[in-house]
Every structure is written in structure tokens, then in C-alpha cells.
Amino acid sequence: MEPKESDADERTLHLADAASIVQANQKDTQIENILNEKLTELLTLLKGQLFTNVHTKHISIISKLVYLSLTTLIGRKTLGEEYVDIFIVNKSNKGLVKRYQRLVFVLGYTLGPFLIQKLIKFWKLRNGSGEGDDSDDDSIAADENVISIETIINCLFDIHMLLFYFKGAYYDISRRVSGLRYVTGHRLTNSEKQLKQKNANTYKILGSVLLLQSISTYMPLLKTGSQLLIKKVYTSSGKTLNDSDMLVDKRDKSGSISNVPDDSRSHHFNLSDKDCFKFIPENSRKCILCLSDMTDPSCAPCGHLYCWKCITNWCGEKEDCPLCRQICRPQHVIPLR
């Protein structure tokens, strides 16, 4: 810092604003992508396309790991941080971060999302395998459980983003967890300060929009959650709640159907699970269109079975059965349940 500066306030560095942090992050992502591309190219040369196709995720993690190990981990600025002139300090803006914090950040940033995905998958599998011998009612409850875990993670992520837009401290969760904050590397002129203030306001607007959006997403979930609770209380007290009551609630006043779960949340029947639809014999469990074990086996009017996705995609092209050419309109395909 310049020694002639007498004001104590000017002696501490300014915390970086949201705009700079986002900009630095974009730059870094760009560079990580370039690294990823080069690494993929190299591996394709060495090991062939099959290898790189199968390991896309791993390659991307490795390239991120390499980039951050060469920059943040050993205490250097990343190119993105250099670009907007910010650097990392600890939570209270009183000094630099410790090495273990940087390590936690690098590992969390690169491996975190991957591990969380694996965990959810593992959880789903464990729940799915127990489903067969349970009664119908229990399997519904298990389904709701899976939904809530993914929803909780999404919800946490939204809260994190909201905090970022309003306070502008941590752009990603791993930085929040390991306590890596940013300060601007130079003194701000007055005009720069004004500009940053303006930017901060823009981000607050963004934050408000996100807030509204999350409220509208999570309110119906809370509603179904409470309905489920009510249903449980009812059944445990010996009464049964009329199912049609619940269904009516799923339509809102305009008559359109809301609350349709997105694809990742809906339950899929996969024939790679030997206990699923045991009546389908071993030699007809593969879909002739994708050559894999069928996912959501679905029946064309002629009786031929395909994956739901495979046959409906084809019907968009031509409305006939790929095997016997009998008419097969998408609305006549029936998924097995």
C-alpha cells in the first residue's frame, strides 16, 4: 500500500465485489475448459475415443485438479484472479488463508459435485433394492425420501446463491466451506467505488428474482410435504384419506397440472435390475433400438417392447413400429408399470 495514505480505512484492502468474483470465475472456467480439451485430445491419441468417451467426467475433474494445484494450492493467483486483480484472504479479511484451507477448497471444488452425485446414486440404489419385498405403501414413502434428499441439496445450493447475490462473498460452496474470501489487490478510486456500488445493486436485483423463484419452487413442495404428513397421521390414526382429494389438490385454479416431477426425480424401471418385471424373459430384456437393458419398458400397439424414450423418439420421426411396421402413434405407447 502507499505509505502516504493516512486514513486507517484505506489501509485495509477492499473486499472484492460480486462482479469481479464472477468475472474471475468465468475466466478460470474458460481456462479449465481449454485444459480439459487438450487433455481429452491427448488421451484420445493415447487411448482412443472409447476411453475418453467413457471417462469424460474423470478427465474434467483431473484437469480442474491440475489447474488449481498449480495455482491456488501453492498460493499463486489463478489467471482469472490475476485478470480482475483480486486475491484470496481469510474469512475476517485479517490475513492469508492457511494451506489446509486451500487444500480443502481444491478438493471440495473438484471432487465435491462428483462425490455428492455418487452418494445420491448409492442412496437410490439402496432404497430401490429394498423396494421389492416391502408393501406398496412403504415404497411410496421411500420414493419421497429420495426426492427430499435431492431437494434439500438443491435448496441448500439456492440459499448459497442467494447469499452470494446479496452479500457477494463466496461464489461457490467449497469456498464458503473452506472460508476463502477475495479482496481487491489495489486501492479503489472514487469513480470505481461508485461503479462497484452500482454493480452490487444489480446483483441484489438478481438475488431478489432468484428469491422469488425459489419461493415459488419450494412452496408447493412444502405443501405436498405437509400433505404427506397429514396422510401419515391419518393412516396411523386408522382413518383413510380419500386419494381423489389429493389429486384435486395437484391441479391449481387455472386447471393446468402443476407439480409434474422433472425427469431425474421420477422413478425409472430399469431391466438391468433382475427383480424388475420378472415376467420378461432373459433374452428379451434388451431394447433393440439402444441395444441396452430397457429403461421404462413400453409396449407398442402391436406388442413389441422398447424403452419409453427410444420408441417415443422414433415415433416423432415416423409413426410405425420399428420391428413390424404396424402403425404406432406416440399416444398409443403404453409404459409397463
Binding site: 472409447l50 468417451n53 467413457v54 433400438l289 439402444c290 441395444l291 441396452s292
Partner: peptide
């Protein structure tokens, strides 16, 4: 895995 890779194999 995509169908093309399966065919290739």
C-alpha cells in the same frame, strides 16, 4: 453408452 459405441464393439 451410446448405441454407436455398442455397434462398434
Amino acid at each position: 453408452m451410446s448405441r454407436l459405441i455398442k455397434e462398434y464393439k
